[in-house]
Nucleic acid binder design. Sequence first.
DNA 1: CCACTAACCTGTAGGC
DNA 2: TGCCTACAGGTTAGTG
Length: 293
Amino acid sequence: MPELPEVETVRRGLEPYVAGATIDDVELRRPDLRFPLPPDFSEALRGATVTSIERRAKYLLFRLSTGMTFMSHLGMTGAWRFRDFRFKDASRYYEPQEAEKHDHVLIDLTHPTEGRMTLIYNDARRFGFMGLFGEDSQSPYLNELGPEPLSNSFNAAHLAQRFVGRSAPAKAALLDQRVVAGLGNIYVSEALHRAHIRPDRTIGSLVDSGGSPVAELDLLPRAVRDVLGEAIAAGGSTLRDFRTADGGTGYFQHQFAVYDRAGEPCPMPHCSGAITRIVQSGRSSFFCPVCQH
DNA sequence: CCACTAACCTGTAGGC
DNA sequence: TGCCTACAGGTTAGTG
């Protein structure tokens, strides 16, 4: 499900209700997610106050008053939703409900002004996982990540340095979280289309003999930033089951230029191409064979 | 180090 | 309706 824009949408949805809230209780209904939960997981959370919620790449980071950080990765189908039975705002009232299928972790919270609520982690495929650490650098998941794509450290010079002399296809290189952190299958296709780079192009060809980025590679960081920024503004993309914490959907899927649009005309102005689907390392890529090279 | 495949797990859509 | 196959937004372990 979630790439960077969807995770950022979740973060923004949780923040007003979870930041400042104290964790009263943790219930593990099915703790065998992609990786085992830390043994002291529940104990570390119980009684702590969530001081802030941050995002790094596709990871949600709940900073705790104890100095620890509780990390959540949503995998393909992970979602956090509220079962909030005492919100002060009546328009946000949800009926108390029985746990639903694939509800794996339940966190009871009390917020000083918003009241009590339960935060529920649901994940049908259980590709999501959670972690607990004191410093980000202690987390093996975080400490090898490449730059945030919305930060200044993500630029063409960085990509040229990572791409020089390598034969991997552009698609695989941008999915590699060590190169740039937060892109997934949708936004790689969209960004490569904007930068006029075919997903099967060898990345070494994007660097000239002096080690400098060629013209298309110069376009790529801006293309990535633009598409992610627009997707965040649209609340992410809902293909099948992505939901914000209050049950809403994203809207960016209506603005896809290429993703899941095989056979449709290329939306690039003055381009006569038709969107084509190919499979790379077992996953779909979409591109325009006319304006991407 | 690099490139590629298989695996993890469940649900759904489409063909017959 | 049932059965079968293909595919799905991610990441890691294992293989050359």
